[in-house]
């Protein structure tokens, strides 16, 4: 029996009075493509941000590749890891943001090579060759020397995916990757994600694209008010939901 790549156990997270996550537990298995759906404010984005440690959990724990994130057990207490150790843990995940967050003062190629050369300290020419291959994979070979402001939203998001892949992560996190895109640009980003899923990458995708979830996801997780309400195979959750709240959400979305 293999172990889960991500193990989330009894995780809670508050923003002041607001409970963003309530006692959430979940496993993500190697190679699995998981889609997280739910209304805004349901906690799905917060869950991703906790896995990437852009947010810290208030209670519970998250294990990535067998390693506890953000803290270490020592003498019956938890001690926070140093910034350097957290940075090293982050390298196991790649994050794609809703608003792309490409570095505007760097070209598409420089965006991709920044992490491997600056953080991992790898050789520039070797990284450059990989970056060119990644650009080809996301269909943007011709745009290597373009700046983000010169690219369409869909192209920017594909560069952002390539930038995350350049760090060779074990897990890719997508935070509503198509929500900021014009409708005609959504398809090109989803196509890249489908190709990535086929290649065996483990992915957690927060999305409103139910068509994508139905086609690509191994598992769909529906969240509401900071808790997991229902999960299962895509045809089951999306086609024949058991919970009333899931039914209400799906009928509101479609």
């Amino acid at each position: 029996m293999t172990r889960p790549l991500v193990a989330i156990r009894s995780v809670s997270k508050n923003f002041g009075e607001f409970q963003a996550l309530k006692n959430v537990s979940l496993d993500v298995w190697p190679g699995e493509v998981m889609c997280l759906i739910g209304a805004s404010g349901s906690g799905k984005t917060t869950l991703l941000r906790c896995i990437n440690q852009l947010a810290t959990v208030d209670a519970g724990g998250i294990w990535l590749d067998g390693e506890l994130l953000g803290v270490r057990e020592q003498g019956g207490r938890l001690r926070r890891l140093t910034e350097r150790e957290i940075g090293r843990q982050r390298l196991k995940t790649g994050m794609v943001f809703q608003r792309f967050n490409l570095f505007p003062h760097k070209t598409a190629l420089e965006n991709i090579t920044e992490g491997p050369t600056q953080v991992q300290g790898r050789k520039a020419d070797e990284v450059r060759a990989e970056a060119i291959e990644l650009l080809r994979r996301v269909g943007l070979s011709a745009k290597a020397d373009w700046y983000p402001a010169q690219l369409s939203g869909g192209q920017q998001q594909r560069v952002a995916i390539a930038r995350a892949l350049a760090m060779k992560p074990m897990l890719m996190l997508f935070d509503e990757p198509t929500s900021a895109l014009d409708p005609e640009l959504v398809g090109e980003v989803l196509a890249v994600m489908k190709e990535l899923a086929k290649s065996g990458m483990t992915m957690m995708v927060v999305t409103h694209e139910l068509g994508f979830a139905r086609e690509v996801a191994d598992r769909v997780v529906y969240m509401d008010q900071g808790a997991i309400v229902e999960q299962g195979r895509a045809p089951d959750v999306l086609g024949a939901p058991r919970e009333e709240r899931t039914k209400a959400f799906l009928s509101a979305v479609i």
Partner: peptide, 8 residues
Amino acid sequence: EAAQAIGM
């Protein structure tokens, strides 16, 4: 956040 996400 993007800089942190690539480990900086």
